[in-house]
Amino acid sequence: MTSQDLKLYKDLCSDDPQLLTAATRQLTRRVKAIAIRIVLGNSGSHSDIDDLVQDTVVAVWQQMRSGAFQVRAETPLDAYLGGVARNKWLKTLHRRTAEALTDLNDSLTEAPGPEHHRLSDMEEALARLGKTCQQVLRLFYWEGYKMEEIARKLGMTMDAAKVRKYRCMLRLGELLESDASDE
């Protein structure tokens, strides 16, 4: 892994949206170069490339973020990216031909989220909250609004908005807990 790859890895693990965006765009360009070779060389067409790039970049980011990706000096990043993209593409091909997939290493493409909650579970839990809850949480976490601004937007006092946010979080935490205990 080169020093540039290491910097890319660190930026991808960053919580800073600007750093993360720039690093993701860089990663996307690299993955795209690899994906073109894989897809066009293995029964795919140009229209398949973007989907594979999107899936691969998100999977790589999840692996890095969750710690499942181990930095190894002797392994070039492109080799790892190629491995993930190839597995994703083979899965797509298998799905298309409706064949059972038994020999692929899922650990390369699937990554757990925080505290082993899968992303799909988290999204599902969020969707089960009320609309106002989703709005408050999205404004705070997605859009980066401060609580004063959220209160003003929703026509509430600041304390009321904070209470709403914490109650929504408690409900979300409860839903995620019950999902985890069901598994």
Binding site: T28, Q54, W61, G113, P114, E123, L126, L172, E177
Partner: peptide
């Protein structure tokens, strides 16, 4: 748990948007 999940989803959204 909720805070971690929300932060993770928000970052994941940033990644998807950038791609």
């Amino acid at each position: 748990t909720a805070d971690q999940a929300l932060r993770f989803m928000s970052l994941e959204n940033t990644v998807r948007k950038a791609v």
